[in-house]
Structures are given as C-alpha cells and as structure tokens.
Design a protein around this nucleic acid. Sequence first.
RNA 1: GGGGGCGUGGCGAAAUUGGUAAACGCAAGAGACUUAAAAUCUCUCGUCCUUUGGAUUUAUGGGUUCAAGUCCCUUCGCCCCCACCA
Length: 859
Amino acid sequence: MRDLNRHYNACETEAKWQAVWERRQSFHVCNGDPRQKYYVLEMFPYPSGKIHIGHVRNYTLGDVIARYKRACGYAVLHPMGWDAFGLPAENAAIEHSVHPAKWIQENITVMRTQLKSMGLSFDWSREITTCEPSYYYHEQKMFLDFLDAGLVYRKESWVNWDPVEHTVLANEQVIDGCGWRSGAFVEKRLLNQWFLKITAFAEDLLEGLDNLGAWPENVLLMQKKWIGRSEGLCLFFDLIDRNDRLEIYTTRPETIFGASFCAIAINHPLASELAKNNFNLYKFIVECNRNGTSEATLKFDKKGFDTGLKVRNPLADDHELPVYIADFVIMDYGTGAIFGCPAHDQRDLDFARKYNLPVKQVITPNANNIIICTEAYEDYNENDLMINSELLNGLTVGVAKNLVINLMESKGVGRRKVNYRLRDWGISRQRYWGCPIPIIHCSSCGVVPVPVKDLPITLPEDVNFDKPGNPLDIHPSWKHTICPKCGASAKRETDTFDTFFESSWYFARFCSPKETECGFTHSATDYWLPVDQYIGGIEHAVLHLLYSRFFTRALKICGYLNIKEPFVGLLTQGMICHETYKDVDGHWMFPTDVKRQHDGVIVERNSGRSVILGRSEKMSKSKKNIIDPADIIATFGADTARLFMLSDSPPERDIDWTTVGIDGIFRYVNRLWRMVINPSIELPPPNTKIPDVFCDEAKKIRQCTHKTIDLVNKDLNKFHFNKAVAHIRELSNVLSGMSNTNDDGTGWALREGLETIVRLFNPMMPHLSEELWSALGHDQLLVDNTWPEIEQELIIENNVTLAVQINGKLKGTIEITKDADIKIIKEKAMAIPKVVTFLNCKVPNKIIVVPNRIVNIVL
RNA sequence: GGGGGCGUGGCGAAAUUGGUAAACGCAAGAGACUUAAAAUCUCUCGUCCUUUGGAUUUAUGGGUUCAAGUCCCUUCGCCCCCACCA
C-alpha cells in the first residue's frame, strides 16, 4: 500500500475543516438576506443504504456551483433532504423484518455522515425528510386544495398493474411495457384510482418549455414529445341500425373517402357492451388484455374482430364501413376509436390486407396513381392532390383538410380538436410506505375529504408485511373511522400517494422547512424561488421534472406560489460507468474481486481463475460493477474524489471510472500541496503591498494569473468544469516552471499566482484550498473570502499572433500589435522566409486579412 | 417504425463557434536520483517520409468557401428518447 506519510494528509485535514465550517455555520443562510439570492439544488437522494458514486458526482457538481456563487457574493440556498417514502423501504421490511421507518432512519444516518465527509456546503439546518408527518401533513392539505380546485378526480380506469410490486404505476413509470423499478411486465387492470389533472395544463406545460432556455435541448424535446400535441378532428359516425353514434379522432380528415373500416379499442364501451352477448368477442378481448399492447414484437401482427356493425360516412350516405375491434387501437388516446384509411396509413394497410378490406388511394403526388401494394403512401405533403374523393377531387391536401373540418362542423357531426398524448397522473398506490390519501369513504355520503383539522392522517406503526397486498387494507383498525359528514362508521382510503408526490414540491419546502401552519410562506418562496440551478440525472426528464412543473402550476392556482416554473436552469449529469466482470460460471463479479495481471489479462483475485471482461456500463448493484465512494474518500480524501469527478469530462457526459484515473488526480493534489508548502522562491508575507516595479518574468506570471481567472470565470459560468480544471493546471505548470531568482516582484507574483490557484480551486477542493490558504499565512477562512478579481489591464493583449497561410495551409506566424494596419500585416506576412521560398517570386492573387485572426495568401 | 444526438491520437478530452487541430490530463517510452524499487524530477509522444525539413491527419466519400473538426449532401458505425398516439 501507498506510504501516505509523505503525502498531504487528506483525512485529517478534511475532518479539521469540516468541523470548523460546522462550528461557524458557514453555510447557513437566512430568508430575506440582503444579498442577491441564488438557489442551487441537487435532486435529493432516496435513502437506500449508503451513497453511491452517482451521488458523489451529483453533489460535487452542485457544490462547485454553490461555493462559486457564494464566493461571488450571492446568498446561496443549498439544502439537502431525503426522499424517504417508496417501495425499497417496504421491500427491505419484508426481507429483513425491519420496519420501513427504522430502515430509512438508519440509512439516513449513514448517508448524512457520508455526505458530510464530502465537505458539501449544505445548510443542514434546512434538512427535510418526506416520510415525517411534519412534511406530509402539508401535502395532504395541498391534495384537499387541489380537490377543491377541481384538479383531482377519482375514476374507475384501466391501469398499469405491476404484478411484482402489487401496485399501480403511472404511464411515465412504465418503460417498454415493464415496471420502471421491478422490470416486470405490466398488466392492464380496471381499478378505482385517484388522478391529478395534469392534462388541464397540457398546453401551458408545452408553451412553458419555450421559456426554459437554460434546460438541455434533449430534455425539452422529450417533454414536448411526451405531451404530444396534435391537431385534428373529432368526428361522429352514425351506427347503422342502432340509435347511436361512434366518435373517432383523426389528424387526417382529408382521407375520409379513403376510409374502409372503423376500429375501436378492446376496452371501448361499445366493445364491452357487445361482448356481453357475444362469447367469441368476450374471449377475444380477454386474450388481448392478457397479452398487453406494448410488446414491440406484437406490432406487426394486428388482431381484429368484426362486430358486424356498420357506420355511414357523414359525407357520403352510400359509403358504409364495417366496425372492427382491434388490438392496435388505444383506449386512452383520442376517443379510443379510429377510421382506417389503408392507402395512407401503414398500420391500417397491414390490417386491411389481413382482413381483406378495400384499399382506396385518395391522395396522389403527381396526378398519376401510384400502386399501393404493401407500402402505404404516408408522407404526402400539403400540395398533393385529392382523387377518388367526390367533392374533394382536385383540391390540394391542405385545402381539403380544412374543407372537411368545416363541413363536419357545419353539419354538426364533428369539431376541430387539439389532442394530447399526455394523460392524467394516476397517484394511487396500493402500498403502505407512502403518504396516506386524506379521504374517507362513507356508504351514505360517498367520498368525503378529511377535514383539515384532522390532518395529518398518519400511518399506523404496527403493520404486518407477512400477507400479500396493501398492509393498510389488512390492518385491523386503521381504516375504520367515522364519516366527518354524517357520523356513521366509514372507511379510510387505504391507497397512498405515488412517491413522486413528495418530490414534486420539496424544492419549495426548503424555503421555510420549519414552518408548521403552511408548507411554505409567501415571503420565503417569493424570495428563494424559482430554483436557479437544478442538477440531477437525465432519467427524470419526463417523470419528476414534468410532475414538478405541473405541481408548481397547481400550487399557483391554489394560492401557494407565485411562479409557474420551478427550475430556471437544469444540468443533467452523465452516468458513471465501469467495466463489468463475470466468472466462468457467468456470475457477475465486483471490481474488488478481480485483478489485472501484468500481461493485461484479468483474473479472479483469490483463485486466479479467468474472468470474462464485459463492456463498460452504468454502475449498478445488479451487475456488481460498483466502486464504493466511501473507500475512495478513505484512501484519497474527498477533494481527490471531487476533482476526479470534475476533471477530463464535461458534466453531462458519461464517464468511465478507472483506478489509474484517480491515482493521477491524487498525484496532482500532492504536487500542488508541495508547491505551496515549499515554494520555489521565497514569498513575501501575506497582504504585502504591491511592488512598484516588476521584472519581465514577474509581469508575465501576473498576466498569466489574471488571464486564468478570466478563463475560469467563463468556464464555471458555463459549467465547463473540466476546462476550468485544465486552465488552473496550466497556471500551476507556469508557476512551477519559474526560475529560481529573486528579481523584482517575482516572489510577489508567485504568491499572487499560488493564492489565485488556491482560491480558484476552492469550490472544487474546499478542504485542500482552505488548508493551503492557511499555510500561506492567512488568518481568515477562505470560505469567507471573496472570489478573485481580475486586473483588467493585465488581461488586455497588446500583441497578437497571426497565423499566416498560403492557400489555407499554415506557413508561419507573425507577432504584431493588436489592430495593426492591414498594409503592415501584409508586408510582415510576405516577409516570412518560408512564405518567400514558397512563393518563389510568384505574385499572389489576393491576400485575405482577418484582423487579429489570420492572414491567407491566395495564389 | 418515428424523433433526436454523436463519431477528433493508444485513452479521457480541448479547439476563441468558419480562422494556427490535438490545450489540459491519463497511459506509454527514454533519462536523472536510488544498491534496487516506489515516489519525485527532466525529455519524447497523431501518422508517414528521403527528418536543421517536408507531406499528411478530425468515421467515409463528395460539395460550398480565401479558409471546414465546425455549414450542406452520401455512405458506414454508435448512443438516447418514444414506440400500433390515428
């Protein structure tokens, strides 16, 4: 093992400064601080055990921003809390017979200590834990306010049922037809559920994206696609021989004459009705429900069932269409019913070919019919012409579309309709470890909200996880209560909120976390919100980030908040990846269980058996390719871990964890430490007055120092931390190369340079920089110091280096005063020996001079 | 299937947004110190050649331009999101 005695003692030093900051409450901020506010927030963790390497990256990024802004003079709110409700706690309870509350509390204790060992500048006085009644009391109140505002409803609906977690999932939580956590295939079930009307804000959430310029493009795009706005027509078809109509939605009304069938979803009310008297249809529906609809492999095999019913085209009485029940039609989108136009829609064509339905082309690109065989003509444009469409014949698609919509509207059989893919947020979860929904079910009064005076409805502590199902439902007494309206015996709602409920407003709670009457006060939220910079993983692009945007709008309507958008800036950090290893039996192996031999071959550390090397993937417990940050911090210190996270790669990019990488950073940390502790030139005492005269070298050093400050400022403002590190290292290379003289001002310039490095590194390596600042003779803490200022005259360049090209190929450079006369530049460029030989007396066609940039001699 | 993004040395990357490609670092090699190793320090380090110099290079082929890693088109490869959304 390494001989640590000859190195900077990170462990001791880091503990020392952490204690100092804590004693002085260095990161405590008050509401209404006269300085300009800056709110930095990292996505709060789920207390699942101990911190993982992704947390280290996330909180390092946030801490650099927080400390930088703080040094720049802002009142920085940088809080931390725990997203404590959720299934893992309940699963742990089942597995280890430990109460979720206890499990969570223990994990929080461990993780809080670990986070503190990273030296993060959190205001711990604002710490919150979402599973505490003091937190979720407010959430229950909000729910009741949402209910009053008409933003909540209860409905029997087809839901995503996770058979492993025994609970319902929101659409956002179903990935590729599987539960986002369990990975189990999701089934469709009909259940009574509470919903939040996120669709009421569909348009506003979409428009709001335009103002989120400081969000990553891909997140904006994902949300836009998720909301999925489309414009079209809702249209009624009369059902023949029935006193009833079928409502369909289409974005292509112009293709109405090409329709050859209608299709409704298997869960469409009409389908259910028909199934009552048709056993074959009943069987068909049951089978389709079992298979689900999301499996990609099923796409090409579309199944349909002919109901025998027919509908009439509203624009042509003699045009009758059969009505099918089809598994590719989704009940939740539009009206759950479509008309099929096989010639211009691939799915409809596949279906038509399978069930021998007519294929009639109604749009043509060039007045000639194209033959439609197995490929539909889908990508037509506005100027294509209509054919085979009676009154639409000869019109362009664009004109026909509007004509059909207007005709339908005037006949009263249709209306223009904007549709969204976004669906309401189902928030009921049939689990114990969540916030109870404050509702009482009374057999005579129906659904009755719990009066505010009876809040919070807390969870019972004596629960039994031995039986399957919701422990709240099985509990002997908890759900039995009295109806607040009529006083008769009644039952509590035993569902709890989706855990995304808690994280949808926690950022506001941090503004006044101790407030008991209200979740947050206007004075606090008006001062701190919105969050200026939010940092977290991209996996929440549409989950948490969309819910929070919705919640903020809902809270505004209910008078809680005055803003619509919770997060002004968003930084999505990349994943930490590591090679994967499997033993010869195919079992995953931890990196600590393998070793790399001199020949590069990887073997089992103990047995020497061969190991199968897999590709680098996101660190995950299941693949065992994890590095415990606690080991890294214990070995190298938090500052080394932090600098490693920031060096080399930009924050949004995935990074590969390598052992050699962290070693390299550790070596640099020590080199820097030695450089300051034992400077090459004698330094004047701290705060010595600036000398009147500087030698040339000292002048150069000073220029370099101040240019570095300028570059680092620009890098940090854009979160280009890897570049900031590179620029500081460049300065340290320059300082370490200083010749050992004591010419005018060199000592002073070196001190200025070293102090600058220490100060610029402070947000990244707070302990080391504090230590070195003290070693440089300063009594005051660096944490209380301001950000270095630039002496403008030192960064202004009087001379520039111009590249000189011939036909775009570099031939040399010239040094010249800035903004020099073009004539002089040309003369100087033409005088370069290489240019002279290359030209060989030829006269250039022209010479292009871009001031202060480049000269290009064109032959 | 639809949408979006990316491709630069052995590796992580940078490139003033169309203007000196490869900053900063990792790995590697050579040397110094050492009995030796580690650590540390110094030097070399895209590729090729006829090496005080020259040619060439940003997945691929073409185009625009005085000038292209950057803009446009072709092909190849990789990644992400949505996925029967009517």
